[in-house]
Design a protein around this nucleic acid. Structure first.
Lengths: 148, 148
DNA sequence: AATTTTTATATGAAAAGGAATATATTTCCG
DNA sequence: CGGAAATATATTCCTTTTCATATAAAAATT
């Protein structure tokens, strides 16, 4: 078993940790009859009062045209609703429906349980430390507004 | 700006950090005329002597049928080559070609430079600590062999 | 105020991905 | 040994994503 470049490459470690642990949870989503993009949208909408398509795309780490289509499908299946809200009439507000909320609530509980399991071997202090490191990494690497 | 569930959710922090930082690097890949899956495969193959399709799928965090198709495309464009190697004749070895190596070498240098930039504000000790935490997280959450 | 530039969302064609399954080979176990 | 189960890869069909661009509204410029 040779030592390979990617084994200590930060981007690989992040991608592998994210992928492995997310996949664990995604298997549980089946119990809630939710697809991954649906979960991401509903979780984002769960504790605010609506977001625009663009905000959702950013939150759910998707491109904007992808999010438009995800919202199309979720609107068809009654999980969310589009509604003009803001004075800026270019934006489109997306709101969770009663049915959407019903479906996401159980998944949210499951997410908290799953997170606790993942962190079961960590002390509270270690958990905080881990999350702080990730938040620092994120804030230091926020996407720059596009420029050529 | 309300505090939302996902803002402190471990899976979200991992996905966001991975996504933001990976996207930074993926923009640089264009300079090397490499697509993301091509980069992942070539980086995986760069310092060994061939891997099977299954090993590559695992390394590159892709499903096996997806990897089969990635290899199809990369073989067409001359970056890798399929070759039976092992005694187990079910497996198919994938090897980097001279052209593949030529293309990946510059990208590898760039990856190291980029990683150094991302970690510029971290001391050596902090860098080690961050990577160790990720490696621990990974080893504690390795995918279990499938069972029903 | 009219024109240009930027920003937010949507659309359409092409590419990629995913789930289920087929095929070939190997391993397991009576 | 011989058949059943398991494993590695490929294939098929269908869904989703991506890239480029269109459209509409707002902001900036003159």
């Amino acid at each position: 078993m040779t030592e390979r470049f990617v084994d200590t490459y930060l981007l690989y470690l992040l991608a592998r940790a994210s992928s492995d642990i997310s996949n664990q949870f995604h298997r549980r989503l089946k119990n809630h009859s939710l697809q991954v993009p649906e979960w991401r949208v509903l979780a984002s909408l769960s504790d605010g009062d609506g977001m625009t398509v663009g905000e959702l795309a950013n939150r759910a780490l998707q491109h904007q045209p992808t999010m438009t289509k995800i919202i199309d499908r979720m609107e068809s299946s009654g999980l969310v609703q589009r509604r003009q809200g803001k004075p800026d009439r270019r934006t489109v507000g997306v709101f969770i429906t009663t049915e959407g909320r019903r479906r996401v609530d159980a998944a949210l509980e499951d997410a908290k349980v799953h997170e606790a399991e993942v962190l079961a071997n960590y002390s509270a202090a270690e958990t905080v430390r881990l999350k702080e490191m990730l938040m620092t990494l994120i804030s230091r690497n926020e996407p720059q507004p596009h420029q050529d």
